[in-house]
Design a protein around this nucleic acid. Sequence first.
RNA 1: UGGGGAUUCGCCAAGUGGUAAGGCACUAGCUUUUGGUGCUAGCAUUCACAGGUUCGAAUCCUGUAUCCCCAUCCA
Length: 749
Amino acid sequence: MSESKDFLRTIVEKDLESGKCKEVVTRFPPEPNGFPHIGHAKSIFINFGIARDYNGHCNLRMDDTNPTKEDTKYVEALEDAVQWLGFDFGDNLYFTSDYFPKIYDYAIKLIKMGKAYVDSLTEEELREYRGMVKEAGKRSKYAERTVEENLNLFERMKNGEFKDGEHVLRAKIDMGAANMKMRDPLLYRIKHAHHFRTGDDWCIYPMYDFAHCLSDYTEGISHSICTLEFENNRDIYNWVLEELELELPRPYQHEFARLGINYTVMSKRKLLELVEGGQVNGWDDPRMPTIAGYKRRGYTPESILNFCDQIGIAKANSMVDVAQLEFCIRDDLNKKVPRVMCVLDPIKVTIQNYDGNEEIDAPYYPHDVPKEGSRKLPFSSEIYIESDDFMENPPKGYFRLTPDQPVRLKHAYIISCKEVVKDTNGNITEIIAEYSPESKSGSDTSGIQVKSAIHWVDAASAKAVEVRVYDRLFKDETPEGIEDINPDSLSVIKDALIEPAVITDKHDDRFQFERQGYFYTDPVDYTDEKPVFNKIVGLKDSWAKKTKASEPKPKPQAKKVQVDGEVVAMSEVQKALFEKYTGEFGLNSEVANILARDEHLSSFYKETLSILNSPVSLANIVVNEVARELKQMQESELKFTTKQIAERVKMVDDETISSKIAKVVFEVMAKSGEDPTQIVEDKGLVQISDPSKILPIIDEIIAKNPDNVAKFKAGNTKLLGFFVGQVLKTTGGKANPKVVNELVAEKLK
RNA sequence: UGGGGAUUCGCCAAGUGGUAAGGCACUAGCUUUUGGUGCUAGCAUUCACAGGUUCGAAUCCUGUAUCCCCAUCCA
């Protein structure tokens, strides 16, 4: 768990504290119409994670209200994903379809209450009547049907007397609602389709907006967490539960931003295109961002979970860098996995001064991984090394084998190049080398200094294996479709050479191939005869970065220029008011502008002015503080009066209280409607301006924070605010900040 | 008659009137028989922009800009 709390947990804690909910119950509610991807993992992590953190529980619920899209194979994949990630839903596996009878009863209830009606418009009419985003819709004439008619029609819908699309059940809300979703949303539609669980029991199915809130309610969900695109649906969610007069506690919906990762796509539609178009080999293709894909690629659940934790939860649409995910899997595997040697692109090396063969004992784990285990490494005069690890004409900074530079064979001897054998085209086919007999790893007395140790395999005993190297699926950071596909996202190496112990020992199913990356024994295609490894992720490669660093270079982007929009002109009346405010009252133009344009504020202001003649201070409080309250409620709902505002302003004007305390007083006032003088008296908030009382506190704080004093004296003048803040904190905000400022500045000079 | 969200470093993201957390990425240096790991240090005088309020503003107020969502009998 990260140290800071996310906004959802903050809400949960608040609800627990206030008693709004007694037990935390969440749910992960996918529609079983596709394979889960890493976005689902985020949702699983959030829902199950929150339930776990607050000793509640989380249900797994299949939201199966659309029979034409859903299937049980997806149910299985979803269950598997949750379990693979390490979460236990126990008996709490539910299906919305189990609630169909209950939801039907609720629909009847709503009809009887006159809050739902059967509509018989065609699909086109329905759309037309809904209106536009900028204009109200109009209600269907069928909305006038009586309760009896509606009951009768709805029953007949259920009984299958109508064809698809002939009728729907709608909530009677408001066809003119600014929120389009509230324009008499559909509750039920007719669908003569076979449901994978309820079979042909039903031919009407509830819509998401009706089924979801009621399913949450019947499961006793406390926090219904979903993604941002459902923000507009929240109104219906609450409407249904409210209008049905369901008993408290009720669930409340909260939304977070869905996960986006660069160089990949996440929508079901686009993923499906990839599978159906043959761009990938099925839903579990290791390049897919699906759980099945990551699983087959060799990602660990721990790494995915850790990733979900690192990226956090917020409401801003965002695109996470895939490097963050890659870091998580490397970080996890680094601590767990045995190191072995595999040469992907072999070149033969003949060690001319070595005779016979031997077996070298080599540990599976490096010094910094506290795990035990080793294997035998056969060694002889014929070996293979990576062709990248030899260069005839090396660039500066190349640490590997060259005609002039010896290199260590990891776990074995130091060799140096004696001769390079080439074919007729000038390609290197073999390297003739010599080894230093005294240089054996662990008992090196040769004194030869090498710059690096490279991996290798013994020619006679190495096994040929297939290695599938995966790269990002798309070449574009924010891919649109298949046109952005990376043509090199998969390269299959048919004849890589691996040390024999990997195949015979079966020490693990994930390995680090030294200096290359992490690899996984493919769970589908791997056999002892034909071993297949999937590349999970490469090691960080700062050499590769260095060699091609010259090309890309970050483009220095100019700071965005702000375009100023147009400001609406003032009416004549407003202009006159503005003139009066700036001229007669001496308000600054900004304050005068706000006041003049807002009828409520200006009338409020006028009233306060008649009580206290302090135009500037009053204007400031009205424009800032009162405006905030007015944003949240009607003028008639305000707890405080103009008289109280005037009173509070007066206290600041005559320095009875500081402006800081004034804020506190205002808050209390806004909440309780108490008189400001009373508040100040009750809480003893009169400000302290006497330096002799403040000085000792300053001394104390200075004594407690020698570091910050030093920083301040070194020129960090921002810290003045820190000291002032500390003084105010210890005095409960009562110290006169102006005085404190002066005194602190004086003290620290 | 439009409404609802969002905006803090290259990418995520804390922060809710008193010293701009953390992770990834990046850049150095040290360690290293993996150009890995580990360790150390450096990376936002500034929070979309412009004003205002305040002793003090990322945080409160006003305005502006940009992006996302909503007009499926999908979820």
